[in-house]
Write a protein that binds this DNA or RNA. Structure first.
Lengths: 165, 165
DNA sequence: GCAAGATTGATGCAGATGCATCGAATGGGG
DNA sequence: CCCCATTCGATGCATCTGCATCAATCTTGC
């Protein structure tokens, strides 16, 4: 039952780790150079903007983003500090609250998407044919599911192309 | 010249990010539960153990591991504190030094490989056929090269199978 | 209706990271 | 030979993360 990892699996693992950290670095760097906040902010803003009335419970945001609870809590603090979101009381559960994206938040999200999508194109799109991108997605999906209980949110993560304006 | 990213590229990007962070989390968690230090320590110990006489210049370690200089510096501090490595003077360049792995370091590296390889098998090997692992590696490689100047070190990163003992 | 347990979100603290900068040493012109 | 640009490695500081824990509230079982 206890197999040793194939060299192929090990090599795939190593590449997965190295390539994503490298590519992520490049993308974050581009965004930062363009004067934008970290990608996590974008992710949060996007989730909020896609929510029914632009608001989510922190606990939902947390589950969407797959980050720890305290991390969500502090991310929200920062968004609120910057006026990108605001806290709203939650009448049906007084432990909780809602976080609502502001107009400034929506705007920033859209502006970031411009730089973000350009970076994705630069570091991913231009290196892979559509067909290969699909293959890659498929292979990755198989890894993703069920490390414990994985919940890949619906799929779309980015706006449709060119959302600003 | 300025294309918008294909949905395929975007979707591949999202999966790459989410899957690796998820899988990495799982692996790190397993290691931590087994009482081992973070993976970065393993990487450093492995690089050192594979070096000619078990020693490297910090700057080489830094380039192998693709982490920032100050990060290397502090990682070495911790390894030295734990007796896993020691600093040696560098006679040919007095700015620098050598870092040499100790016997304890080599041992830890081998013990970690046991847990590490098991985790890789659990989270990667068991989900992917060898053939698919090869395909995945190939696709990832295409992404890796030349975000700036990528240097994927030679390939092997892990010991040959079952190195401990 | 109530006590026990679970869930939500915040926070104090220790340790880690990013950034800028520093001092020391090297190496290359002129 | 000397100066200057560059490389090597360390570190002060602000920020960020992980962990444990807290108080408040909700839910469940009785």
């Amino acid at each position: 039952m206890k197999r040793k990892p194939s060299t192929e699996a090990t090599s795939a693992w190593i590449r997965l780790m190295r390539v994503q950290s490298r590519v992520l670095d490049c993308v974050e760097q581009d965004l930062k150079k363009a004067g934008f906040p970290p990608l996590a902010w974008y992710d949060a803003l996007l989730e909020l903007s896609r929510a029914p009335s632009g608001e989510l419970r922190p606990v939902e945001l947390e589950r969407q983003m797959l980050i720890p609870q305290y991390s969500t809590s502090r991310l929200i603090d920062r968004l609120v500090d910057e006026g990108l979101a605001c806290r709203r009381e939650c009448k049906i559960d007084k432990r909780g609250q809602f976080v609502e994206i502001t107009e400034a938040g929506r705007e920033l999200q859209k502006r970031m998407w411009g730089a973000y999508s350009a970076a994705i194109e630069k570091y991913v799109g231009s290196k892979l044919s559509d067909a290969d991108a699909v293959k890659l997605s498929g292979l990755l999906d198989r890894l993703g599911c069920s490390c414990g209980e994985m919940k890949l949110p619906p799929i779309v993560h980015a706006n449709e192309t060119t959302p600003s304006r």
